[in-house]
Amino acid sequence: MQKQRGLSYVTMLLAAIVLGFGMVLFFKLVPAFTEYFAVKRTVEILAKENASAPMPDIREAFRKRAEIEDIKAISAEDLEIIQDQEGTEIIADYKKIVPLIANASLMFEFRTSAKGGGG
């Protein structure tokens, strides 16, 4: 008598549920990280290109780039801009809450900064 091999129906169903949950999680989290990398890229470009510009000009440049990059998690007013003899440092520090299922959510704390040349 030969023993039966392979996955049972219940095992396949459990594997499909786990895979489905993983895919839902993946598709909910990707936009948060995509937006973070857009914020990071924008902050780096602003620090490089607008290092000697006054703060209102830097904020306005961020507003324009944020509209193009579809950045909604942080506004220009939320940026911390430090200008001194060493240059300009732009810091973006924000939280993003990603709703999962019903009342379960994930909260991410993102922080990025970039320093531009002397002004």
Rank of each mutant, 00 (worst) to 15 (best):
K64N: 08
E80D: 10
Y94R: 02
A53P: 01
R41F: 02
I71H: 09
M23I: 15
S113P: 05
I71L: 04
E89H: 09
S75Q: 11
L79G: 09
Y36D: 08
D93P: 04
Q83F: 08
F33L: 09
A51M: 06
Q85Y: 13
R63H: 12
I101V: 14
L13H: 00
G6M: 02
L7M: 15
I58N: 05
P54A: 10
M23C: 14
G117R: 01
D93W: 00
M12R: 05
I101H: 07
K96R: 08
A73P: 06
A114I: 00
K72F: 01
K72R: 15
Y94F: 05
A47T: 07
R5G: 11
A76M: 13
K40S: 09
R41A: 04
D78L: 05
K95W: 11
K3R: 15
L29A: 06
G87M: 01
G118F: 13
Q4W: 10
A66R: 03
K72S: 09
S75V: 12
L79Q: 09
V24C: 12
S52W: 06
V43Y: 08
R65P: 00
V18H: 10
A73N: 13
E86F: 08
D93Y: 03
E89C: 07
R5V: 13
A32G: 00
Y94T: 07
D57I: 05
M23P: 11
A16I: 01
F62Y: 15
A16P: 11
S75F: 11
Q85E: 15
P56W: 08
Y36M: 04
P56D: 12
